[in-house]
Amino acid sequence: MIHHGGFIVKRPRFKFIGKLVDYFDNLDVDTISMFEIFAMVEKLGITYNVNVFWQLADKPIEVTQLKNDGDVMEMVSNLPRDHYVHLYLEAVVGFSEAEMDELGLGEPEMDEHGFGEPEMDEPELGEPRI
């Protein structure tokens, strides 16, 4: 079960503010990975960066962020009998690419020879110089 289109409030207790919920059934717990989770996010039409959090249906207060495949394996190893896991998608808040460029916060520009490499002048062919 994926909750999206909202944000997480952690105090005074966990709550997701958002009304969009989608279901993905019959997932193979032996092969599930972050790649598959982000493929599901993409199927929802979400094109912005998100943090993914998970919660077991029988533990409504605990929420844990999924950062890598090890976290996914931990989630799978804690599946309750009903096998329902709630995933919560929260947009990553930050500067847009255009804002970063405008502020000069983007990646350093590199010429075609690469960063830090000395440029060598090629010898000119032709008449020898005396």
Rank of each mutant, 00 (worst) to 15 (best):
M1I: 13
M1T: 14
G5L: 02
G6L: 03
I8G: 04
V9G: 02
P12A: 01
R13A: 06
R13M: 04
F16R: 02
F16V: 03
I17M: 12
I17T: 09
G18W: 03
V21Y: 01
F24R: 11
D25H: 15
D28R: 07
I32L: 15
S33A: 10
F35R: 14
F38N: 07
M40H: 08
V41Y: 00
Y48K: 15
V50C: 05
N51H: 14
N51R: 08
P60V: 08
E62C: 04
E62H: 06
T64H: 06
T64S: 12
V72L: 10
V72I: 12
M73H: 11
E74T: 15
P80I: 00
D82I: 11
V85P: 01
H86E: 07
H86M: 11
H86D: 11
Y88M: 03
L89A: 05
L89K: 02
V92Y: 02
S96C: 03
S96L: 13
E97K: 15
E99Y: 05
M100L: 14
D101K: 15
D101A: 15
G104M: 05
G104D: 02
L105M: 10
E107L: 15
P108V: 09
D111Q: 06
D111H: 10
G114I: 09
E117L: 10
P118K: 07
P118V: 08
P118N: 06
D121V: 15
P123D: 08
P123G: 03
E124P: 02
L125E: 14
L125G: 00
G126C: 05
I130S: 05
